[in-house]
Simulated assay, not measured.
Amino acid sequence: MRTFARLAFALALGLVAGASGAQEMSATGIFSGHGVVKAVAPGTGWLTLDHDAIKGFMCAMEMMFQVKSVDLSKDLHAGDVVDFKIDAEKYTIVDVKLVAHAN
């Protein structure tokens, strides 16, 4: 799955290629994001998020992310609105806060 996520990220950046693409690829640190849960992978906790632009890291897109711990996504469902923190070097969600439940 890790290879799939990196491939998806690389393809997404290719689709939005521009001057900011190279800058976004070199980002390191923890960044904050906001988005809607599209899917939670059973057993692994991987999250597919449709997220807004993450300033200094990546453009708005829908993408699958690994989570640091399965516990972070265990109570999330498709349609939930979340705020999250992501480790830019590992493309891993390190914290998730539920903002609103799915309608």
Rank of each mutant, 00 (worst) to 15 (best):
Ala53Ile: 06
Asp83Pro: 03
Asp87Tyr: 05
Val36His: 04
Lys74Gly: 04
Ala53Ser: 11
Val67His: 01
Ala8Lys: 00
His101Tyr: 07
Thr92Asn: 14
Asp87Asn: 15
Phe31Ile: 13
Glu24Trp: 07
Cys59Ala: 13
Gly56Thr: 08
Ala8Cys: 03
Ala60Ile: 04
Gly29Val: 04
Phe31Ser: 07
Tyr91Trp: 13
His51Val: 02
Asp87Cys: 03
Ala41Ser: 14
Val96Ile: 10
Phe9Asn: 06
Asp71Lys: 12
Ser20Ala: 15
Leu15Met: 13
Asp50Cys: 04
Leu76Ser: 02
Tyr91Asp: 09
Met58Lys: 03
His77Glu: 15
Ala39His: 02
Met58Asn: 09
Thr92His: 13
Ala27Leu: 06
Ala102Pro: 03
Leu15Cys: 11
Val94Glu: 14
Glu89Val: 12
Ser73Gly: 08
Thr48Glu: 15
Gly33Trp: 02
Lys85Phe: 06
Ala17Ile: 12
Lys74Leu: 09
Ala53Phe: 05
Val82Asn: 11
Lys97Ile: 02
Leu47Asn: 00
Ala12Met: 07
Gly14Tyr: 07
Asp52Val: 02
Cys59Val: 06
Val81Trp: 00
Leu76Arg: 01
Leu47Pro: 02
Glu89Met: 09
Ala27Gly: 05
Ala102Val: 12
Arg6His: 07
Ala10Lys: 05
Lys90Ser: 13
Trp46Ala: 14
Ala39Met: 04
Ile54Ser: 00
Ser26Asn: 13
Gly21Pro: 01
Leu98Ala: 04
Gly29Asp: 10
Ile30Thr: 14
Asp80Ala: 04
Leu13Glu: 12
Leu76Asn: 05
Asp87Trp: 01
Lys85Val: 06
Gly14Val: 10
Met64Phe: 05
Arg6Phe: 13
Ala27Tyr: 05
Val94Met: 14
Gly14Ala: 10
Val70Thr: 11
Ile30Tyr: 02
Asp87Arg: 06
Asp50Gln: 09
Ile93Met: 10
Glu89Gly: 10
Met64Ala: 11
Phe65Val: 10
Leu72His: 06
Val37Ser: 02
Phe65Asp: 00
Leu11Lys: 04
Ser32Met: 04
Thr48Phe: 11
Gln66Tyr: 10
Val40Asn: 01
Ala53Gly: 03
His51Tyr: 02
Glu62Cys: 08
Ile30Gln: 03
Asp95Trp: 01
His51Lys: 08
Asp75Trp: 03
Glu62Gly: 10
Lys85Glu: 14
Asp75Gly: 09
Val36Tyr: 01
Met64Cys: 05
Gly79Phe: 13
Ala19Trp: 04
Ala78Asp: 04
Trp46Gln: 12
Val70Asn: 03
Thr44Glu: 14
Gly45Asn: 05
Met25Tyr: 12
Thr48Gly: 13
Val94Phe: 14
Arg6Trp: 12
Gly43Phe: 06
Ala5Cys: 11
Ile93Ala: 06
Val96Lys: 09
Gly14Cys: 11
Ala22Arg: 13
Ala78Val: 01
Gly21Cys: 12
Ser32Pro: 00
Gly79Asp: 08
Thr92Ile: 11
Lys38Trp: 02
Gly35Trp: 02
Leu13Phe: 07
Val67Lys: 03
Val96Pro: 09
Val40Tyr: 00
Lys85Gln: 15
Lys74Met: 09
Ile54Met: 02
Phe65Met: 00
Thr92Leu: 15
Leu7Asp: 10
Ile93Gly: 08
His77Gln: 15
Phe31Glu: 07
Lys74Cys: 08
Ala41Tyr: 08
Gly45Ser: 08
Leu13His: 10
Asp52Gly: 06
Phe57Asp: 05
Thr92Arg: 15
Val82Ser: 11
Val70Arg: 03
